[in-house]
Write a protein that binds this DNA or RNA. Structure first.
Lengths: 337, 337
DNA sequence: CATAATGATGAATGCGAATGCATAATTATC
DNA sequence: GATAATTATGCATTCGCATTCATCATTATG
């Protein structure tokens, strides 16, 4: 194992001072062409790379962003992670990844992130208690909630327009002739779950009807399946179900088809939310509200870096997402949103 | 934004020296109960946490592991990531995440990881050129390839027993009465793809038959679908297809059923590899070889940390995975592996 | 009670690179 | 060609904490 090679080693080899070496590796610092080439040559010979940790100590910039994710089984989050990686890499930042179930451990994780001197934190569908938010604020570490809103704590947040999405689904299902419509919601303690539900219920109300049932699926496939069973156990089963996200919608469809022997969409229409890649797979061919993940991620990164770089205000951004019409729900003729 | 609070601030507040503060936060260092409680009190009042970067500079231990992942759309990798997070967290390490397409950029990423002084690197289905492997070796940074083998470079690696898995599939399909069996392989430039293919072909050979076709699906759903179409376009279409991983198998099943109007398993049996959660979803109900992801991850972490802590040798570990029999392939009566 | 052994503590040092300051080398301007 | 303006360069310092060394307090041992 070769010993670590430092800027002093390179300096000696190149016959210059350590400062010169540092300047060559610091964008914008002044160094003559001669020095530069000597240093680069020596660095290559020795296999030198600046120690980012040491650099971070001086500059106070680690170029690391902490990312906290709750679920990875729901395909939306791996996809978000992939986009986040690209967007952050393009801006010269790196990801330190943590998993946190929603209930617990977020505080602990934030403490660890802070001790690593991350420059910012992105949480995906993870909320943050007020005192933790305050701690980040006091430490000067900006936080952006991705796909999760929160009224308290004055945190930046980026979501799709969930209320509008829910409303769009209501219009679409009503236009499709459905009158007995159930909703298996996302977790109702989360803003996304709640907003979609509200938009949906409001949307139906505008047509003078109410959902036949609203049950909290809590983003769990298991719970969603159970709810589906009990909904359809009734003589008066729904003819359409709006499900709070695609991940649950797949379970709902499977339960309807393979357990209850019902046809989707002939017996029951199903609509999801997210438009993850699986939704387009022929086995599901799920009609769903698309969350424009790319735009959402870009907005998240923009907001975060703006706050890192110039202390900008925290914003709340809502990006509208279109209904992606596929085959899991009856298509009204001439439907316009 | 409160200014950073350092160990000196805490020391002043507690009326002790900076060394004392450091000792209180360093497990195993000696400090009296009185000092300890004074320091802890002061630290809490000031909201102090040791700066991990500064600590890492001194100790040479960053407690960070670099994780490099190629795909996140194939559910196997998010699942692996989740397990990795748990296993590493339990050992006090953290993840710095990078995405790399297989062909490019791995070298660049490794350089960045090294500059962050990571203590080890795990690559998931990502290979590493020999000079990059050497660079890690020279820098004393152990590397473990997860779910990917590689003969050159003397790298530690953890996979399932892919050859055996392929063979098991061959036996199972033969016992199920299939004689016209095709294989849409994983990427044949990867050890996993190659080993599964070899085991499979060998297994069939032991029964005196050969696959009717072996095509490289390159882990792409699109390519797998295209191959499925062309395979079934022939008058002599296969009655079973072994697919190199679940992710492609889903696309194959969808193509067979919804595009070609064939029944799975009545017309064509399909078997995958991985046993990701989706494989158990009723829509697919995929018979597949389970990769024991938990064991694989634990082995990966064990090997890596052993090499970090005591310079252990690099190992090659193969963990056998059972056939998970579901409904996508005909079930031979009384089949024993 | 004296001496040895152990534990606790602070001052000083160093990890590796960035940067302010002062000076030297180069280039621009008249 | 002389002076001003600019660019390069090195020295010394700094970031925050762990650790060595020497010193001092405490406890153990005969």
């Amino acid at each position: 194992m070769a010993d670590k090679v430092t800027s002093f080693d390179v300096a000696r080899q190149a016959g210059v001072s350590q400062s010169a070496v540092s300047r060559v590796f610091t964008p914008g610092a002044s160094a003559s062409a001669a020095t530069r080439s000597k240093v680069i040559k020596a660095a290559e010979e020795l296999g030198y790379r600046p120690n980012t940790l040491a650099r971070a100590m001086i500059t106070g910039k680690s170029r690391v962003i902490g990312v906290v994710v709750a679920y990875l089984e729901n395909q939306f989050y791996p996809m978000a992670l992939e986009h986040l990686d690209h967007a952050l890499k393009a801006r010269g930042y790196h990801i330190m990844l943590f998993m946190a179930k929603n209930d617990d451990s977020v505080g602990q994780i934030v403490e660890e992130l802070m001790s690593y001197q991350v420059e910012g934190i992105i949480t995906a569908s993870v909320a943050m208690s007020n005192d933790i938010a305050k701690r980040c604020h006091d430490a000067g570490i900006p936080v952006v909630l991705f796909n999760r809103g929160q009224d308290t704590g004055n945190l930046a947040q980026v979501t799709s327009d969930n209320v509008k999405g829910g409303r769009t689904v209501a219009n679409f299902l009503f236009a499709g002739g459905h009158r007995k419509i159930a909703h298996i919601s996302g977790w109702l303690e989360s803003s996304t779950g709640l907003d979609r539900m509200r938009g949906f219920v409001d949307g139906l109300a505008e047509h003078g009807i109410a959902p036949v049932a609203v049950e909290d699926g809590r983003y769990s496939q298991k719970i969603a399946s159970e709810i589906t069973r009990s909904l359809c156990d009734s003589p008066d089963r729904p003819d359409a179900i709006f499900v709070g996200n695609d991940h649950m919608a797949f379970a709902v469809m499977d339960t309807l088809r393979f357990e209850l022997g019902l046809s989707v969409p002939d017996d029951v229409s199903v609509i999801g939310y997210d438009d993850v890649p699986i939704a387009a797979w022929p086995a599901y061919d799920l009609t769903t509200i698309r969350q424009p993940i790319n735009q959402m991620v870009n907005a998240t990164v923009d907001v975060l870096l703006a706050r890192i770089e110039n202390d900008a205000a925290s914003e709340r951004i809502q990006i509208p997402g279109p209904l992606k019409i596929r085959g899991s729900a009856k298509k009204p003729k001439g439907f316009t949103r």
